[in-house]
């Protein structure tokens, strides 16, 4: 027993509490709040730095180029964001994207077969990708296999299916509508692809901020056991999240097919790691529960500005990934709230 002073009796009057009186917030935490914007400041600083070294960076056409190069990574990273917020991971990006791109290329007017389904081909292909996402989620929660391994397998399967239906070759997209996504610039501004990516950003933002699913994603990432105690349908939420991710990779497939004007099984090569990197650089924690789609926007922009800047500054392509590696470490080291994480895996 550790007796304490006996609290005053009932009628001593009710003290009015304001949060500061309860210890409320303290000054140290507002610094942490500031830290959450670190990736954004990093983006600004990086842009200014590159702009200072080469003023062409801020030219209108270059900025459009940056936006354009960010469109596909943004769409993919948005899907990945929700998965990472859960504390899971999805390695199937490249496979799903390949299936999406190949299906679209084969079902619209192309040089390989007689199909010409137009926009319904796009819908079909993206639905197929949602289906793969569903499978990812269902196997993950159904068989209780870590998402890492399920999606690793699905990566192979995806690339394999794309290879199989194309027989290892490449097919060219002849459909004007699809190509216009990458080529047309309404009102001389961003290409349609950028608008599509921004639309995806808007929708995922609404899902994250305004829907129950969004709320539950954070709850599961913050503490799966507590979330389950509050009656949240954890399994269903996880499956939905993997479906959303699959859908967005499918959309990424559409944009890729439009940009390259072709579909092949390796169209997604190299996308996985840049996607995860963008999400983490934006400030979303791999442990789940922290971050969000706006963070991802910042992360994708950092990577896009960095890529563009290195070209502008004439850094040899060989060195680029090295520079990128160093800057990623710096960015994450600066923005990670490491005091809170006792164990880093």
């Amino acid at each position: 027993m550790e007796p304490r002073k006996v609290p005053p009796s009932a009628d001593s009057g009710t003290p009015q509490i304001r949060s500061p009186e309860l210890g409320g917030r303290n000054a140290k935490l507002s610094l942490n709040r500031l830290k959450r914007y670190a990736p954004f400041f990093a983006l600004i600083a990086l842009s200014l730095l590159i702009g200072a070294m080469n003023p062409r960076f801020f030219e209108f056409n270059n900025l459009i180029r940056v936006a354009n190069s960010a469109s596909i990574p943004l769409v993919l990273s948005l899907g990945m964001t929700f998965v990472i917020l859960l504390g899971s991971i999805d390695l199937s990006v490249e496979g799903v994207l390949a299936i999406g791109a190949v299906l679209i290329s084969l079902l619209v007017r192309n040089n390989g077969n007689g199909f010409d389904l137009g926009w319904s081909a796009v819908v079909l292909a993206i639905l197929a990708c949602s289906g793969i996402g569903f499978l990812n989620g269902a196997i993950h929660v159904g068989l209780r296999i870590p998402s890492f391994m399920v999606t690793l397998g699905m990566w192979f399967i995806g690339v394999g299916v794309a290879t199989l239906i194309l027989g290892g070759s490449t097919v060219r997209v002849l459909d004007k509508g699809i190509r216009s996504i990458a080529l047309d610039r309404p009102m001389g501004f961003f290409p349609i692809a950028v608008w599509v990516a921004l639309g995806a950003l808007g929708i995922t933002w609404v899902i994250e901020r305004q829907t129950r699913i969004g709320r539950y994603i954070y709850a599961i990432g913050g503490g799966e056991d507590l979330a389950a105690l509050s009656g949240i349908p954890v399994k269903r939420v996880k499956i939905i999240v993997f479906m959303i991710a699959g859908t967005l990779y499918g959309l990424g497939g559409l944009l890729s097919a439009a940009q390259l004007g072709q579909g092949n099984a390796l169209i997604g090569s190299g996308r996985l790691f840049s996607t995860v990197t963008a999400v983490v650089v934006g400030g979303t924690a791999l442990t789940g529960g922290e971050g969000g789609v706006l963070n991802t926007l910042v992360g994708v922009m950092i990577m896009a500005v960095l890529g563009n800047g290195m070209v502008l500054l004439g850094i040899s392509p060989d060195v680029q990934q090295g520079v990128q590696g160093v800057l990623i470490i710096v960015a994450v080291a600066l923005s990670l709230d490491r005091a809170r994480l006792k164990i880093v895996k």
């Binding site: 990197t277 983490v280 590696g325 470490i329 994450v332 490491r338 880093v344 895996k345």
Partner: peptide
Amino acid sequence: LRIPSFIVTLAT
């Protein structure tokens, strides 16, 4: 630096 290994080794 307490950075997740996924990111560090990718950077390396």
